[in-house]
Structure formats: structure tokens, C-alpha cells
């Protein structure tokens, strides 16, 4: 039941979302859609395990006596033909999935923190081009502009990057990086990256991370476009790309930059009210379904009036 749902979402949901072009139009909604998709899969699997485990969860003798009728009712609702073996497996599944994700999350956060701190330390010592309010300008012959998110937000640009851009373009780049920092885009990337590293073979998680990274860039472009204009940002992108020589031999396909420039030279075309509403509803449905499916048998049991728990909409009696 839930496992089937998870598989369907993982396979068909991913396929659908990968092919659709609408996320590029409204990156924020696109990010929401991908997050809802992956989170829904994760939650479904965990809750499936939990649901299977319910019949066998050991409860203390006193509590069991107190709720004996209720416990029995709930257990029968969740019982499956598999019996105890299936329940134990289900419980282990839920626990191991959560443990795996938890581990990847913590490990990822620790590594990122350490790398950022190291970068900042080293940057402090590197010779400065000149002072700027927001950005650290570092003396270097290769152009680079990036930000270090986290607790100590910092934008970094090299002197080569500053030389390659005019004032407007540089301002646009800084606005873009600032958008990343203030919008805490790193958090959303941590979420998608954690799932991807926890279960690398699930295609939905891989695609979600790539899509989220891409959409986050487009979102920052949109925010920067409020202060600047789309064409300036696009030009800045191209100028910096040109100035980077020699280009790396590695050619990652499906370049984000190309998509961004194409998108920026065309006028903005965000999703309308209907589209946005539909997306939010779909995301909510994706997230609510596993919870509803798991809670349903408990609701049925409580409706039998044997349980001292009530669900919203039921009159306690």
C-alpha cells in the first residue's frame, strides 16, 4: 500500500517532474514540488515500516491491561497476513531508513561546516584586492564569485572577476549571491543532498538534488533581477564564463548556466494563480497521503469506541 505509493511517486512522479518545464518559470514552486516529492517518498517508506511494526510493538504489561481492548483493536486494524516476521522487518526498515538519513545529514553538516571554516581561515590570510562592504575581494588571476553560506555568511570575489565586469554587472552578481545567503538556499540543498547521499541509487533523489541546485540558481537570479535587470545578470554570467580560461576539461552535461542565460534573455513568465495553487495543493497531497494512509487504521480502531483517543472530527464519547 504505502510502499506501492512510494514506488509510484518515485518512478512516475520523478518522470513527470523531470520532463516538465514549469519549474523553471517559478523556481520557488519547483523547489517545493521536488522537496515534496522526495520527502513524501522518504516518509512513505518510514511510515510503511512503522505501520507494519504496530502489531508487534511491545507495550508494558500495565499499560496493555489498561488499554487492552483498545490495543487489540488497533493491532487488528494494522495486522497483515505476514504476521510477526513481517512486522519485525517493517520495524527494522523504518528504523534503518531513519538512521541512514540521520547519519548522512549529520555527517554532511559537519563536513560542510569544517570546509567552510577552513576556507574562511585561509581567505583571511590571502591578499586582498580592495575592501568592499559585503564581499571579500581576493587577489587572484582566475575569476571566481561565490558565497559561503552558514552561520558566517560571506561573499567572495576575485580581482579577476571584478576586472571582467562593469559596475552594474558586479552589482548583479553580488545581489545574486546575497539572495542565496538571505534566502538560506543552502538549507534546501542540504535536504536534497542528504537524501541523495543516503540512497544514491534512487533516481528520484538524484534528479531532485540536481533540479533543486538548478532551481536555486534561477531563484537567486530572479531575486537579483529585482534590483538589477535580467539582461545584466545574463551578461555578467557570460562575461565571467568567457574570462575563465583555460576551461576545465570536465564537461558536465545539462549545464545550468546555459539554461539560466536562455531563461534570462527571455521575459519572465511565472506560473499564474491557478498553476501556483495547483502546485501547492499537489505538494500538500503528496505529503498528506502517507500520513493519512498510516493513520487510517488507527482512526477506524478509535471509532470503535474502545480507545481513549479521538481524532479531529470525532466526538469523544
Amino acid at each position: 500500500m504505502l510502499v506501492v505509493f512510494a514506488v509510484v511517486v518515485a518512478v512516475h512522479g520523478r518522470w513527470l517532474l523531470s520532463r516538465s518545464g514549469w519549474p523553471d518559470r517559478s523556481p520557488r514552486l519547483g523547489i517545493l514540488a521536488w522537496q515534496a516529492l522526495t520527502f513524501s517518498i522518504f516518509v512513505s517508506v518510514v511510515l510503511a515500516g512503522v505501520a507494519l511494526a504496530v502489531p508487534e510493538v511491545p507495550i508494558s504489561a500495565d499499560l496493555a491491561a489498561l488499554l487492552s481492548a483498545c490495543t487489540a483493536a488497533v493491532r487488528t486494524q494494522y495486522a497483515t497476513p505476514g504476521g510477526a516476521a513481517l512486522s519485525v522487518t517493517g520495524g527494522m526498515l523504518a528504523v534503518s531508513v531513519m538512521a541512514r538519513v540521520g547519519y548522512c545529514l549529520v555527517a554532511g553538516l559537519v563536513t560542510s561546516r569544517r570546509q567552510r571554516r577552513r576556507q574562511l581561515e585561509a581567505l583571511t590570510l590571502a591578499p586582498r584586492g580592495h575592501e568592499d562592504r559585503d564581499a571579500l575581494v581576493v587577489n587572484h588571476s582566475a575569476p571566481a564569485a561565490y558565497c559561503l553560506p552558514g552561520r558566517r555568511k560571506q561573499i567572495v570575489v576575485t580581482t579577476a572577476a571584478v576586472a571582467a565586469l562593469d559596475d552594474d554587472q558586479l552589482a548583479a552578481v553580488l545581489a545574486h549571491e546575497r539572495a542565496h545567503l538571505h534566502g538560506r538556499h543552502d538549507l534546501v540543498l542540504v535536504a536534497s543532498d542528504t537524501l541523495r547521499r543516503a540512497f544514491p541509487r534512487v533516481r528520484a533523489f538524484r534528479d531532485a538534488h540536481l533540479a533543486t541546485a538548478r532551481l536555486v540558481e534561477m531563484l537567486a537570479d530572479d531575486v537579483a533581477a529585482r534590483r538589477s535587470d535580467r539582461l545584466t545578470i545574463a551578461t555578467a554570467l557570460v562575461r565571467l564564463a568567457e574570462a575563465s580560461a583555460p576551461p576545465a576539461a570536465l564537461g558536465a552535461g545539462g549545464s545550468t548556466s546555459l539554461a539560466r542565460v536562455r531563461r534570462l534573455v527571455a521575459p519572465a513568465h511565472p506560473l499564474g494563480v491557478t498553476g501556483s495553487a495547483l502546485t501547492v495543493l499537489a505538494a500538500a497531497a503528496l505529503l498528506a497521503t502517507p500520513v493519512a494512509v498510516v493513520a487510517a487504521p488507527a482512526a477506524v480502531a478509535s471509532a470503535a469506541d474502545l480507545c481513549p483517543i479521538s481524532f479531529p472530527g470525532q466526538s469523544p464519547s
Binding site: C147, H180, D193, S244, A252, S255
Partner: peptide, 13 residues
């Protein structure tokens, strides 16, 4: 590095 730092434009051929 994508989670450690975010570049304005990535390396490309």
C-alpha cells in the same frame, strides 16, 4: 562543494 559554497557560474567547456 555545492553544499559548502555556491558559485555564481560553474566551470564549463
Amino acid at each position: 562543494r555545492a553544499t559548502t559554497l555556491m558559485r555564481f557560474v560553474e566551470q564549463m567547456p
